[in-house]
């Protein structure tokens, strides 16, 4: 049993793709799950907006209890070669994927410190460590998440709070529908991954059993980065 009765698990971008699969698995493990997304979800916020995040966390806390698990999964892509990438395309991806994770982490840590227990999992990407032309903004945001992960892991380790990252490879979701077929040839496993493949790893990192796993980078990519 990993879920704690008095707290909840908040999953950003939890209504679709990997986030929805994570929400399902955490629910199966007994967690009260709160999905956060811009539209729909249990609470609404654009994670890039720190004030909206603060309001959403206050609402989550009020309705579901303190946040003891946070899965920073909200993200989006605006692909293009760096030579043609606008500042707006760069900024919007970094603000959502990286700053958004920080804003949510910032809010969740208050509850986790009070509980002296917490699990944060950041959903990074294989492109954080393996370049993919056309994704300078996305890759930079996902690599930034790894540095955020390691730093928070070190800062909070003494307080029973862990912070880890998963690095999904080519996962079959709406977000990768346009590119998955072209990338599958590079995957040693010979197939794309499913959201459930990632969700299982996230659920482990959120469990009591993973208490001594901290600052880890777990590739879930069928061997793509190996």
């Amino acid at each position: 049993m990993s879920a704690r009765d008095d707290g909840c698990a908040l999953v950003t971008g939890g209504t679709r793709g990997i986030g929805a699969a994570v929400a399902d698995v955490l629910r199966e493990r007994g967690w009260k799950v709160v999905t956060l997304s811009r539209n729909g979800g249990d609470v609404q916020a654009d994670v890039a907006d720190p004030e909206a995040v603060e309001r959403a966390f206050a609402e989550a806390r009020e309705r579901f209890g303190p946040v003891h698990v946070l899965v920073n999964n909200a993200g989006h892509r605006r692909d293009g070669l760096a030579i043609r990438m606008s500042a707006e395309e760069w900024g919007s991806v970094v603000e959502t994927n990286l700053s958004g994770a920080f804003h949510c982490t910032r809010r969740a840590l208050d509850d986790m410190l009070s509980a002296r227990w917490g699990r944060i999992v950041n959903v990074s990407s294989v492109v954080a460590e393996r370049a993919n032309p056309g994704q300078a903004n996305y890759a930079a945001s996902k690599a930034g998440l790894l540095a955020l992960t390691r730093t928070v892991a070190r800062e909070m380790a003494r307080k029973g709070v862990t912070c880890n990252a998963v690095l999904p490879g080519v996962i079959e979701t709406d977000m990768t529908a346009d590119v998955a077929d072209g990338l599958v040839a590079a995957v040693p496993a010979g197939r794309v991954g499913q959201p459930a493949d990632v969700a299982a790893c996230v659920a482990f990192l959120c469990s009591e059993e993973a208490a001594y796993v901290n600052g880890a980078m777990l590739a879930v990519d069928g061997g793509l980065a190996a």
Binding site: D110, L113, S114, E155, M156, R158, K159
Partner: peptide, 9 residues
């Protein structure tokens, strides 16, 4: 510094 944050809270 982290202990202090916790104390303040």
């Amino acid at each position: 510094s982290l202990d202090l944050v916790e104390l303040v809270k």
